Simulated scan of single mutants.
Amino acid sequence: MNNHISDNSTNPAADRFARRVVARLDQGAGELPYDITERLRAGRMQALAKRKRAAVASRPVVAEPVILHGGHTAAMGGGWGSEGGNWWRALVSAVPVAALLVGLIMIGVNQNEAGANEIAEVDAALLTDDLPPEAYTDPGFQQFLKTSQHKL
């Protein structure tokens, strides 16, 4: 077992109690079977991983200044967390999304219009062509229309 006690506590009574608990657990650890000690080790590793994730998540993010070099001059610029300019970055980030949406809408409208134009051309060809009324009831007429559509 690990005899290390964190230096984060400031209560000496709690430290003494923790040391006694660790000493007692260390005494009993030698008597445990191998499979139980392995499960305890795995549980300890999971607990440490959770503690590390919680510590990283609770740590505040601080933006550090960035030095931008441009030719013979240097300018100081703030990171993402600098004051003023967050709205500008959000606006600039939204422009490509808006352009994509406008493009998709235009493509959809164009496709609908093209489909309507094709149907109108077929209808106009049928209505202006000289066909006897019996042709419309002929079972092969649908096949004729399908094959003639590709030729238009």
Rank of each mutant, 00 (worst) to 15 (best):
V21A: 03
V22D: 02
V22Y: 00
A23C: 03
A23H: 02
R24D: 12
R24T: 10
L25C: 12
L25Y: 01
Q27H: 11
G28M: 09
A29Q: 11
A29S: 08
E31F: 03
E31N: 14
P33K: 06
Y34V: 15
Y34M: 15
E38K: 08
E38M: 10
E38W: 01
L40P: 05
R41C: 02
A42E: 10
M45T: 08
A47L: 09
L48E: 04
K50C: 04
K50G: 03
K50F: 00
R51I: 07
A54I: 04
A55K: 07
A55P: 03
A55M: 08
V56F: 10
A57R: 09
R59M: 11
P60F: 03
V61R: 13
V61A: 15
A63D: 12
P65K: 05
H69D: 12
H69N: 12
H72D: 15
H72C: 13
A74R: 11
A74P: 00
G77Y: 10
E83W: 02
E83R: 05
W88A: 14
R89G: 05
A90Y: 04
L91W: 14
S93W: 15
P96E: 00
V97L: 13
V97E: 06
L101M: 14
V102C: 10
I105N: 11
I105P: 00
M106S: 13
V109F: 09
V109S: 00
V109E: 08
N110Y: 13
N110L: 14
N112I: 10
E113Y: 11
A114D: 14
A114F: 08
A114Q: 12
A114M: 11
G115F: 02
G115W: 08
G115L: 06
A116N: 11
A116M: 02
E118C: 07
E118L: 12
E118W: 06
I119F: 09
V122E: 03
D123G: 08
L126D: 07
L126C: 06
L127P: 02
L127G: 07
T128V: 13
D129F: 15
L131G: 02
P133I: 11
P133C: 05
P133T: 02
A135H: 01
Y136D: 04
T137P: 01
D138V: 03
G140F: 02
F141H: 06
F141Y: 01
